[in-house]
């Protein structure tokens, strides 16, 4: 594994972060340092160890099929940077 400028570009794109060209090398270095520290995990024998996603012992609680929410357009749009006639507005999306 080696994180280089291209990796940084690719990851930044996936994460929708605009990382300027001149910072990419530096960030690659930081990520390399952190990741090589994290690679200590490789020392642990995890064969046949079930991954633990949640410590919560109970199973997923189910809720009843009832309409209990909605009809609050004002609340939904209250913080919108741009809105028009009840819609959120964004720069045009090209499909």
């Amino acid at each position: 594994m080696s994180v280089d400028k291209d990796t940084v570009k690719k990851i930044a794109r996936l994460a929708r972060l605009d990382v300027p060209e001149e910072r990419q090398e530096q960030i690659a270095g930081e990520l390399r340092a952190i990741l090589s520290w994290i690679e200590e995990l490789g020392e642990v024998d995890t064969a046949n160890v079930e991954p633990l996603a949640s410590v919560t012992g109970h199973s997923l609680p189910l809720r009843a099929d009832k309409v209990t929410d909605g009809n609050k357009v004002d609340d939904i749009l209250a913080n919108a940077p741009e809105q028009a006639s009840g819609f959120f507005v964004v720069p045009k999306v090209v499909e």
């Binding site: 099929d65 309409v67 209990t68 929410d69 909605g70 009809n71 609050k72 357009v73 939904i76």
Partner: peptide, 24 residues
């Protein structure tokens, strides 16, 4: 279903923009 998969807002078709929307 009456309500959405993970929230209590309605699934009805044809509501005004963002009417069937919860904070979730």
């Amino acid at each position: 279903s009456q309500a959405k998969l993970f929230s209590g807002s309605s699934t009805t078709f044809g509501a005004g923009p963002n009417e069937n929307v919860s904070l979730v």
